[in-house]
Write a protein that binds this DNA or RNA. Sequence first.
DNA 1: ACCTTAGCTGACCGATCGGCCAGTAATTGA
DNA 2: TCAATTACTGGCCGATCGGTCAGCTAAGGT
Lengths: 181, 181
Amino acid sequence: MARATTTRADILDSAVRLFAAHGFRGTSLQDIATDAGCSKASLLYHFTNKDAILTELLAPVGPEFAELEGRLAGLRGEEAARAAVTGLVDLSLRFRLQVKILLQDVDALINRPELPAADHIVERLTEALSGRSDAPQARVWAWMAMLGIILTSASECVIPEETLRAELTRGALRTLGLPTG
Amino acid sequence: MARATTTRADILDSAVRLFAAHGFRGTSLQDIATDAGCSKASLLYHFTNKDAILTELLAPVGPEFAELEGRLAGLRGEEAARAAVTGLVDLSLRFRLQVKILLQDVDALINRPELPAADHIVERLTEALSGRSDAPQARVWAWMAMLGIILTSASECVIPEETLRAELTRGALRTLGLPTG
DNA sequence: ACCTTAGCTGACCGATCGGCCAGTAATTGA
DNA sequence: TCAATTACTGGCCGATCGGTCAGCTAAGGT
């Protein structure tokens, strides 16, 4: 019988927190080992290499995502769209730490002194929507609109610029609950 | 009179493309120098260090963002929200390469084999919205909704989960142009 | 013709990285 | 009791990183 050690679980716990805090590349094996209270060599005894740790952390996401895709295949039109939205919301909330790993490197760059804090724009948007900056739904919509605009513009390169400009504006206004007139 | 050399401009041109393709950390000084057709030492003759290159690339974004914030300060309510949206769309499209730098590390992680390609869900959403997968506005809205959900969920940690779940769903449905019933 | 300077380079440096390996201590089943 | 296995470690390795430096070359001003 194997001894009831918690080292392996400790490593995974430390890794997911450090990856989420400093990014995958920004976290060294020594960082993880120190945080987990073991040696770097012990870490590489439990995992073949650094990548294997990330792989194991992301492993549960894949099948769940595939299941959602399978569910969508049997649906059409508005029903499919609604299922996709609720499924994505559910997955995003259940794997928040994993998503935060993906986001970390973006944060590190967005918080550079040459760039303005994105929070300022979100704050303005939230105030504009609610008059008060602490209304939860206004904050969520403001974040969604801002991230939707900024990140979609970088991902969608095949669409003509004018079309993209018009549709990004329409989509964001609708996200905020404003008429697209 | 100084000689009309293009090395400095070549370096900036190579850097922005390589940063956008492989991320800041994923691009070495040697990579940039090779692409620009000069030595690494020459690169460090024109720029004090690696960070200075990124700083210069991001420099034009800051003032423009600040100007947008200033414009928003003089507006209220729906007018402010509309100005924020059109301003954000404009900035995002004008600094697409810079935004792509921020996004690159996310792409590198999202394209791991354990994670499903996000494009699949976008494809399903687009089909659900339009019946045809090549309708430009449907693709844009699908991307906006997906990125809005996933990334907002990681950014908004203070809001109670149930509120977040409800508002993410409402916001995404509105982005897609669907009733939030 | 000569000096200054801008532009550029190869060689090198210390630090840090992921990863390897021989060896050790402790627990286990026989 | 003892060999085998598990868990773990310190020390080391090669590679790569960002960055430095002395020195070369050629263009310009005088």
